[in-house]
């Protein structure tokens, strides 16, 4: 499926996989270079990626089509394959304990089936202005919980870099809400023109992401007052990435954001000033893509 997606985006699969691996290991090096407890964050990220394979609809399909033994083998295999890039890096760094925790977690997660269709309605602070943050919050509240816990740890041990990472992580999670395209109807239904629509989406995203980042910002300013400049700079960077993600999504609409958008995002992560060029460029493309729908 991944190879088909690359081909659809006019990318040779081997080239796309190579680029993705480069970006992945580049990000891994950056993470371990920047923060002290990176191995735990790394394992958490890996397990969160692996857990996505255990969705009820997906596993139900596999259970219908395979015998119980084959199903279990398949789930074990795919979890271990998904964990392998993380394991390779941890073993290379000689971090045996986190690597072992990751392998154990991947094996245990192959027995777990997540039911996303739970009827329990988690209250969302963003209920008044649906939809990205309203449903995104319900899908990723546990990540915010983890980020807030890490922030408290960062503050209590006096590790500003970890706190800084947590602040950026809030925006990272929020960016994931814009990683897929909504059905055509949900853009068509707006009575705005393309520019008003993008402004509306951006305004809502900045307001909601800032609300989620506010507790971390306050804590960091109180405990690390000398770092206020960096804290506000990271807030601005977080906003810029979020804006880029929104305009990037609609620059291909109604098609799903593709590999090219992923690569551009990765390049911007390694060199954020590039956003100053890419945001206006992608915004212009988005307006052109949305104009026929919203005119």
């Amino acid at each position: 499926m991944l190879c088909r997606r690359f081909s659809d985006d006019q990318f040779a699969p081997w080239l796309a996989i190579l680029l993705l691996l480069l970006v992945f290991y580049g990000f891994s090096f950056y993470l371990f270079f920047k923060i002290s407890y990176a191995s735990y964050v790394y394992v958490l990220v890996a397990l969160s990626v692996i857990s996505r394979l255990g969705g009820k609809e997906r596993t139900d399909f596999l259970r219908i089509n395979y015998s119980p033994e084959s199903y279990l083998k398949l789930r074990l295999m795919e979890n271990l394959i998904a964990a392998s890039p993380f394991m390779v890096f941890l073993f290379w760094k000689l971090m045996i304990l986190p690597a072992s925790i990751l392998i154990l977690g991947a094996i245990l997660l192959s027995f777990v089936r997540w039911s996303l269709g739970s009827p329990y309605v988690l209250p969302s602070p963003f209920s008044k202005r649906p939809f990205e943050f309203t449903i995104g919050f319900r899908k990723s509240y546990f990540l915010y919980f983890g980020i807030y816990i890490l922030t408290i740890i960062a503050v209590s041990v006096g590790n500003f870099n970890l706190g800084f990472f947590c602040l950026l992580a809030v925006f990272g999670v929020a960016m994931s809400y814009y990683g897929y395209s909504e059905p055509f109807y949900y853009v068509w239904v707006y009575s705005f023109n393309a520019r008003q629509f993008l402004f509306h989406k951006t305004k809502t995203a900045l307001l909601h992401s800032s609300t989620l980042a506010l507790p971390i910002i306050i804590l960091l300013i109180v405990v690390f007052p000398l770092e206020i400049g960096i804290i506000f700079l990271s807030l601005v960077i977080g906003w810029a990435f979020l804006i880029f993600m929104i305009v990037s999504k609609y620059s291909t609409y109604p098609a799903e954001p593709g590999i090219l958008q992923g690569i551009l995002l990765a390049i911007c992560i390694s060199f954020p000033p590039l956003l100053l060029i890419l945001i206006p460029y992608t915004y212009h493309k988005s307006v052109n893509h949305l104009r026929p729908i919203l005119s």
Binding site: L116, V121, S127, K128, P130, F131, T134, I135, E182, Y186
Partner: peptide, 12 residues
């Protein structure tokens, strides 16, 4: 949308 209530759909 998954995880969206009827009320939120109307609001949207």
């Amino acid at each position: 949308f998954n995880k969206m209530t009827g009320r939120e759909y109307i609001r949207l």
